[in-house]
């Protein structure tokens, strides 16, 4: 990943030297589509009961594993088919939006916030704080996350809030390292030195000049991290450590349906999977767009 901090010149030089711009240039149409998609998902999360044709946990054993309507055995009452307990998939996907978004975004925000704060301090002040934090980060990276998650959940017990905590604990390292690296190089930049020379206090320098300059990198990483968080949530669910039934989440649906998918019922995992993909993609596109909007270099 490239660091967008320095200046447009560094980017120009990169173009000059012939390297392709790694950045995907999101067209306005793409942004619009992403926005609409995310809006639809948010609406689902807000009013699932109004939109869903059935309650999410209503079981109809006779209707087990029905395929989507357009297939041979399909039933028009269950547009996306049903799962192994005969629950309506469309309704479950719609209901799943709420918890998936809440869990995903809050884990993302908490870990981003903590990670960036820690990384900023470590990178700006260096010294023992830096050594200590980075060692902690290395140690954490060395432990497989599932192991860590099991350990934490075992201590604090499974609950939806705790899942968020576990996910956040897992995520901060990425941000901390990113923010630290950027802060390290930013603090040597002349403009930061210039503010120190002017007598600006540290908090002013960090909040007004370092943070805004590394935010764009953070946004990009955050939008990529969301994918990781959602997959992680589904693996936790698979182990029974994730979102606890009867609450529905996409991750749980994926984990839950995995065995039936092998039996040919692909729709059981495909639709929650698609929902996850749509969310991640639209957030990626919007993240890119947001970064551009925040960059005065790209403004008129």
């Amino acid at each position: 990943m490239s660091a967008p901090i320095a200046s447009s010149q560094a980017a120009l030089v990169r173009e000059l030297t012939g390297r392709r711009l790694s950045r995907f240039r999101s067209g306005d149409l793409l942004v619009l589509i992403a926005f609409l998609m995310l809006a639809a998902i948010v609406v689902c999360a807000l009013i699932p009961a109004t939109l869903a044709p059935h309650p999410p946990n209503q079981q109809e054993i006779t209707m087990r594993l029905l395929p989507p309507t357009w297939m041979a055995r399909g039933d028009s009452a269950h547009p996306l088919g049903t799962d192994q307990l005969g629950r309506d998939l469309l309704s479950r996907v719609i209901h799943g939006a709420r918890i998936s978004l809440i869990v995903g975004l809050s884990a993302l925000i908490i870990s981003g916030f903590i990670g960036v704060a820690i990384g900023l301090l470590a990178g700006y002040y260096r010294g023992w704080l830096d050594d200590w934090i980075m060692r902690l980060a290395d140690v954490q990276l060395a432990i497989p996350y599932v192991l860590l998650a099991i350990a934490i959940i075992a201590v604090i017990g499974p609950s939806n809030l705790n899942v968020v905590l576990v996910l956040a604990v897992n995520g901060w390292v990425v941000y901390a390292r990113l923010a630290r690296g950027q802060a390290l190089s930013l603090r040597e930049q002349e403009f930061i030195q210039a503010y120190r020379a002017l007598g600006a206090r540290d908090w002013r320098i960090v909040l007004q000049h370092i943070l805004p300059n590394l935010l764009s990198a953070v946004i990009v990483v955050a939008s990529l991290e969301l994918a990781g968080i959602i997959t992680l949530e589904s693996s936790l669910s698979f182990l029974g450590l994730g979102i606890q039934p009867p609450t529905v989440s996409w991750g749980y649906m994926l984990a839950d349906g995995r065995t039936y998918q092998l039996g040919g019922a692909w729709w059981v995992v495909t639709f929650p999977g698609l929902a996850i993909t749509a969310t991640i993609l639209s957030i990626n596109v919007l993240g890119d767009w947001l970064r551009d909007v925040l960059d005065p270099r790209l403004k008129i």
Partner: peptide, 23 residues
Amino acid sequence: MRLLRGGEMAMIFQNPMTALDPV
């Protein structure tokens, strides 16, 4: 164009410090 740049047509920038990527 990309093949030309850095090949047959090269450019050296005004601000050495900002033209090099600090990371």
